[in-house]
Amino acid sequence: MTTTIGKVESMRSVFGKKLAEITQSDSMVVTLDGDLGNSTRLATIEKEVPEAFYQMGIAEQNMICVAAGMASVGLQPWVCSFATFLTKRTYDQLVVSIDQTMANVKLCGAYSGLLTSNTGKTHHSLDDIGLMTMLPNMTVIAPGDANETRAAMEAMYNYNGPVYIRLTRAEDIPNFTTDQSFTIGQGKVLEEGTDVAIITTGSMTYQVIKAVKILKNKGLSLYVLHLPTLKPIDSEAIIKAAKQTNYVFTVEEHYIRGGLGSIVAELLSEEYPTTVIRIGVQNEYSECGKNESLLDKHGLTPEKISGRIISKVYN
């Protein structure tokens, strides 16, 4: 399959619009904001469905448990904040009140990864995949484009249980997925080749698609597996990718520890021992900078990703 690139839609704008549609169609769905709605675009609900919008203020721990209490009475709350505050600041509340009770709460981590409008390390979320996939009852989704975000949100709405969705603020990702429906736990093969498997998730899949063009020019045959669900993980698709190729790389806008790279390496070490090269943020804190500079510094531009793969394969 060759990836076709569609129009650019902002993930956060689609997030706001889709959630407004859901709240309009179902009065049991409510939204909770941690005073960031104008950034995350949860503000769309305040504007279009004000009775479904609850402002919880700058108090994330309370917000998480309020959502759990609402869910226990039958509502379906969607809680939205910056990914770093939504996960780290409330972790015990997420464990005890959401995950242990299996509350039907949807957690929306906006501004995940490095691209947070130049706000620096306090606002970067590079550990949320690790934190959230660690929770036994949690489902974790990181869509790759706006179209997939829309489809994933519909799947989240129809799923009964806690779900975390990791969204990027980047606004230059064109739609490369075309599916109208989303199956939780299913990976998508974007390229089928035999030399190198690149396994990606979320915002990095588009960077990988661009890297693939560079790599093809170097004569490599690429296998690209996009994993928009990190838990439950599509083990079969990962093993298949490893079996069909000679090298496995993972790419994520996250620490290489605890995220996609760890998940793939852990799985393959037991099921099909393979060397896994993890591309992502190393053991260090990030800093402020423009999107392009940050991706470059952490080796996540198409040029850096392809360069890393070439140096490994042709070395």
């Binding site: 721990q61 998480i64 448990c65 209490g69 226990s72 039958g74 509502l75 509340q93």
Partner: peptide, 12 residues
């Protein structure tokens, strides 16, 4: 955590 959950139930 319980008072927050109670707030959620009361709002619901």
């Amino acid at each position: 955590q319980g008072l927050s959950a109670g707030v959620g139930m009361a709002i619901a």
